[in-house]
């Protein structure tokens, strides 16, 4: 999918904030207009039916003023949050998605609010108000449509230019000389997240029963394991293993690699976040932004690992590749 974009370049900061806030302001305006219009026409019961069961009958009621005020406050809070996020520099590569999420939220809040008000106004009596299931689908569809508009307005996604040392370096290795490169890479933040998750899991195990607690503990342990990883490059290829356990969880055999380079990696722009990421164009372990090894694999995909001294690792891999394929001739 390659959507047409209204801007050849991503929008400026101010414009982005305006785009982020716009749907929430529209949603507030629509909710207030619809509410006030029907209230003054004396068609709204009080309290309103504000929650509906799966069969469409009303099963929850709120005062009309409270309902509209609550919705408006939530919309304003979300709008302010969206505007702030749209300004955050670090999130700039993901800005179209921040905008899309805002537009989606605004629509999925405003549409059900209006539908609820209209259902109450149409029925005259709160208990008689109905909201069939298809109206929920309408709200979701409206949300997706608004989200698509937000994404479109967000402009083209900036493609990170591969910077830093380019080309395929080599290492001067004598014939018969053996070499291996190893280094640990880690994220203190991820370690902290893992620890907190484990603690939360233990707490949950006591409070809410063992199952939920154990699941959370396992998630925390997995995060902790990924927080410090030993990267090894040798005659067998590239291997990733937890720094504390000598068992590789990911191996890229040498014969799957066509070329290794060292380049700067931007986790947010290229992989949408940190951790072990899998994307259409490639996968890899990205625990920070900056220097990393980039392997071009057979089939065209890329495998990256963010690690210091990546240039040496890439050079060693290329040298080992030359050695494994003496007939390559380039």
């Amino acid at each position: 999918m390659k959507p047409a974009t209204p801007f050849t370049r991503p929008p400026t900061d101010t414009l982005r904030v305006a785009i982020a806030a716009f749907p929430f302001l529209v949603a507030v305006a629509v909710a207030v207009v619809v509410g006030v219009h029907h209230k003054t026409a004396d068609r709204l019961p009080d309290p309103l039916a504000t929650h509906f069961g799966a069969d469409g009958t009303a099963d929850g009621f709120t005062s009309a003023r409270g309902f509209v005020t609550g919705v408006v406050l939530v919309l304003l809070a979300l709008g302010a949050g969206g505007a702030v996020l749209a300004r955050v520099r670090r999130l700039a590569p993901a800005a179209p998605w921040v905008l899309a999420t805002g537009w989606f939220l605004a629509a999925t809040l405003a549409v059900p609010t209006c539908l609820t008000l209209l259902a109450n106004a149409g029925a005259g009596q709160a208990h008689a108000a109905r909201m069939p299931l298809w109206q929920v689908l309408v709200a979701i569809a409206a949300g997706l449509l608004a989200g698509a508009v937000g994404l479109w307005l967000g402009g083209p996604r900036p493609r990170p230019e591969p910077t830093g040392p380019q080309g395929a370096p080599r290492l001067a290795l004598a014939a018969g000389e053996r070499a291996g490169w190893t280094r640990t890479t880690g994220s203190p933040l991820l370690a902290a997240v893992g620890l907190v998750t484990c603690c939360a899991g233990l707490y949950l195990a006591f409070v809410a029963g063992p199952f939920a607690g154990v699941a959370l503990c396992a998630a925390g342990a997995l995060t902790g394991v990924l927080a410090s990883v030993r990267v090894t490059v040798d005659r067998r290829g590239l291997a990733l293993a937890p720094a504390l356990l000598p068992y590789a969880f990911r191996r890229i055999p040498l014969d799957r690699v066509t070329e290794a380079t060292c380049r700067n990696i931007d986790p947010f722009a290229e992989f949408g976040g940190w951790g072990y990421r899998v994307r259409a164009h490639g996968s890899g372990l990205v625990l920070r932004s900056g220097e990393g090894i980039a392997l071009r694999l057979r089939g065209g995909r890329e495998f990256v690992v963010t690690v210091d001294d990546a240039a040496t690792a890439a050079a060693l891999l290329n040298t080992l590749l030359d050695r494994a394929r003496p007939d390559r001739g380039d």
Binding site: L173, G176, E177, R178, A179, G180, W181, R183, D309, T312
Partner: peptide, 9 residues
């Protein structure tokens, strides 16, 4: 870090 060993040394 890089480890290099040459068995012929």
């Amino acid at each position: 870090m890089l480890f290099r060993v040459d068995p012929r040394s």
